[in-house]
Design a protein around this nucleic acid. Sequence first.
DNA 1: TTGTTGATTCAGTAATATTTGAAAGATCAG
DNA 2: CTGATCTTTCAAATATTACTGAATCAACAA
Lengths: 168, 168
Amino acid sequence: MELEEARLKFIEAWGRLGSEWGINRTMAQVHALLLISPEALTTEDVMEQLSISRGNANMNLRDLIGWGLIEKQHRPGERKEYFFADKDTWNIARQVAKERKKRELDPVIKLLNELSEIKGDDKSKEAKVFKTTVKDINKLAKNVNKTLETMLKAEESWFWGSMFKLLK
Amino acid sequence: MELEEARLKFIEAWGRLGSEWGINRTMAQVHALLLISPEALTTEDVMEQLSISRGNANMNLRDLIGWGLIEKQHRPGERKEYFFADKDTWNIARQVAKERKKRELDPVIKLLNELSEIKGDDKSKEAKVFKTTVKDINKLAKNVNKTLETMLKAEESWFWGSMFKLLK
DNA sequence: TTGTTGATTCAGTAATATTTGAAAGATCAG
DNA sequence: CTGATCTTTCAAATATTACTGAATCAACAA
């Protein structure tokens, strides 16, 4: 397989994976492109290489910055902005975990806590099942939460090392 | 908060969470409904309670069966089919992990392995960065994979117990 | 101040994903 | 076989999400 073909496949696969996980396909593709680019790229580079419009490129680049996955680079004497991606996969994983936790898990846990406090007419089967289900999911969510917090603070090698002690 | 309000909020939240994670909103809502229903429900029950069409209800119920999250129940003497959800949150988590691994992670790992074999013109910076990036992501993906495999085989209490030893 | 370059915004458009509902298919009792 | 009941399918309609491109804004040099 040639490099060019491989690059395209990688970008496409990253985009598909992103959209399967609720992340804008193009944003994931822009990220993929920057991940495999040795040098920082301009908005125009991104537009050309992915055949997308200026507005689209601009928006997704800024979203990626919001996710903490890429950064702007200013070059002395130049007006153009350059963008480059952190290529450390452990950082990427942690960053995505951190953002999704904040945007999605935390709000759900908040709601589940509220729903746990529903007033307890436990004579009805409905109420009983509801409370049990909410309580169980809440417990699971909190366990996931703690695990993520551990991961967010951890060094990669320590984290996987610990994980694989579990394997044996 | 009243039970009825709480039920609606739960269903809505589950649906939203689903769609944020690339799962059809309605499918997640049907799942939520069955999770908090003490008795198995018919297609008609689901249609009514979620105000969706017969076709929609039917498709999502079958998809949920495909995900291993709900089951059909046949009642002697009755033609109608009843559906009920496994309410064990650990089973649910494992089932979802298992399916997504199969549908998404496994194919990605397969591709990454192929992309790793690209022929090695390491003089170009492009090729060098590409290979390094693919290799690193591949490593991460395989670690995630192993972790999931451990989880899939594990008992809930053992799994979280082990996880929290890491916390300390 | 004006012209140039580049970034940003957003209304309109396009692409995707989901839902509907009616028709067709199954299953069964009589 | 026929009618009744329930399930499944799928083309068309609808809803949601993403993208484009031209206008606007911002920064700077001359």
